[in-house]
Simulated scan of single mutants.
Amino acid sequence: MRRFYAVGLCDALGLGMYLSLSVLFLDRAAALTNQQIGIVLGASGVASLLGAMPIARAAERLGVRAVLGALFAIRCAAFLALSAVSSFGQALGAAAVAGLLSRGIGPLIESGLISRVGDAQAVGTLARLRTLRNAGMAAGALPAGAAIAGGAAWGYRAVLVASAVLFLCCAAVCRGFPASAAAPGGPGGPGGRARILRNRPFLAITALYGGFTLSALLLGIGMPLWIVQQTQAPAWSVTLIQLLNTVIVVVLQVRLSRGSERLARARALMCLGGLLAGLGALVVPLTVLGAGRLDLLVVVGAAVLLSLGELLITAGTTGAALLHIPQGHKTGHLAALNLGFAVTTVVGPPLISTTVSWDWAGWVGWAAFFTTLGLLALRVPQPRSRARREQVATVAA
Rank of each mutant, 00 (worst) to 15 (best):
R103W: 02
G186K: 01
G340M: 09
L334Y: 03
P234M: 07
A320I: 04
V67A: 00
E110P: 05
G332D: 03
N134F: 07
A315Q: 14
D119Q: 11
V304A: 13
L296P: 00
S163R: 08
M1W: 01
A367P: 02
G16N: 02
Q382M: 05
Q327H: 14
S87F: 06
G155I: 00
A171F: 13
L312P: 07
L373E: 04
L24E: 00
T371E: 02
I325C: 14
G328D: 02
R195E: 15
G45N: 15
R61Y: 06
S257L: 11
R198S: 11
G63M: 04
V254W: 14
V117S: 13
Q35E: 14
L32T: 03
A368C: 14
F167W: 13
G328F: 05
A377N: 07
A96L: 11
I196E: 01
Q382F: 04
G89L: 08
R157I: 06
R130W: 07
G112D: 04
A58T: 06
L100K: 09
F177R: 07
T231E: 11
V67I: 15
R193G: 06
L373V: 07
G192P: 05
A91L: 04
T331K: 00
N134D: 01
R258K: 14
L32S: 09
S48E: 00
V23N: 01
I109N: 01
L160E: 03
G186E: 02
A30W: 08
S102E: 09
C174W: 01
R65H: 00
L297T: 06
A179G: 10
C170T: 06
I325S: 09
T206I: 02
L225I: 14
R267C: 03
F25T: 04
C271P: 03
N245V: 02
L108P: 04
A56N: 12
T314N: 13
R175G: 08
L297Y: 12
A56Q: 12
L351T: 13
